[in-house]
Nucleic acid binder design. Structure first.
Length: 270
DNA sequence: CCGCCGCCCTGCTTGC
DNA sequence: TGCAAGCAGGGCGGCG
């Protein structure tokens, strides 16, 4: 499931390949996956557009277009955004295809069909419900302490809340909490200031390391070239039920928290 | 404002 | 061995 490091890797890969290309045509096989503003036709609006840049916000891939519009993609769990040559085999569950003038194509495939592509008008604010970027200067230890203060919600649930911090999903929430030695179910307000500082550092460290390793491929994730990431090889706890904790050797447990599988070490996360 | 819950969906796992 | 139920989960809307 693409989280911040995976989406960042996809966006960087796309930036290298599709910037400057012009869309010849768009093929939509599953209409619900393509959303346009009222009165705008997705296919007609995009034909003839060229890509001016690709970036990331939270878990969204943002493609800038020459008209000033943006194409914002949410990959959810099983979405893939891959550049292919014409003639190359399609991925199963390919629902939207952008054909470029040069014969390459960008495919949006998603087995579970939870993903969405949204066309955004120039100047339209589409991300007002998204919180801080954890790798930006705005994410400070002091701000994080303030974000947690007085909150009874489990710290892991807070990490997953995109309205507070944007981009952390289940994998990196589990890994950052392990790294900081904090129990996932601990109420946010019950963390000591040193613990909040450790968690702040762990979030930045884990996300940065995962980007360097081009993301985590535990099930469907591939980058813009269709290649797997490498962080699945260095995970400490995610998906590691009954395996020894890399820090203390005690078995990793799996519990359910905020309706999500949660892997952690009962011995060294407190 | 806050927190919780159900829904969307398909493929894999589990259990009889 | 075969089949169906159960489970997985990010974002969003509804509800209290």
């Amino acid at each position: 499931m693409p989280e911040l490091p995976e989406v960042e890797t996809i966006a960087r890969g796309l930036a290298n390949v599709v910037v400057g290309k012009t869309i010849a045509s768009v093929d939509i096989r599953l209409p619900k996956m393509a959303i346009a503003p009222p009165g705008v036709d997705f296919v007609r609006a995009l034909a003839g557009e060229s890509i001016t840049g690709v970036s990331r916000r939270g878990k969204y891939v943002v493609m800038g277009l020459a008209s000033g519009r943006k194409l914002v993609t949410s990959l959810r769990m099983t979405g893939r955004l891959v550049v292919q040559q014409d003639g190359e085999a399609e991925y199963k569950g390919t629902h939207i295809v952008f054909h470029y003038m040069d014969g390459t194509r960008l495919s949006f495939a998603d087995l579970r069909t939870f993903g969405r592509m949204r066309l955004v008008e120039p100047g339209e604010v589409w991300d007002k419900s998204l919180g801080l970027e954890p790798l930006s200067k705005g994410f400070t230890p002091e701000g994080f302490i303030g974000m947690l203060s007085g909150r009874t919600t489990p710290i892991k649930a807070l990490l997953l809340d995109q309205q507070r911090i944007a981009g952390i999903g289940n994998i990196y929430a589990c890994e950052a909490l392990w790294d900081a030695g904090i129990k996932p179910g601990r109420p946010a307000k019950a963390l000591t200031k040193p613990a909040v500082r450790r968690l702040h550092r762990a979030i930045i460290e884990v996300l940065t390391r995962a980007i360097k390793m081009r993301g985590t491929s535990v099930d469907d994730y591939v980058d813009a070239e269709g290649l797997q990431g490498g962080f699945q090889n260095v995970l400490a706890v995610y998906g590691k039920k009954d395996e020894p904790c890399p820090r203390c050797g005690k078995p990793i447990v799996r519990t359910v928290l905020a309706q999500r599988g949660t892997w952690w070490c009962r011995n060294c996360q407190r």
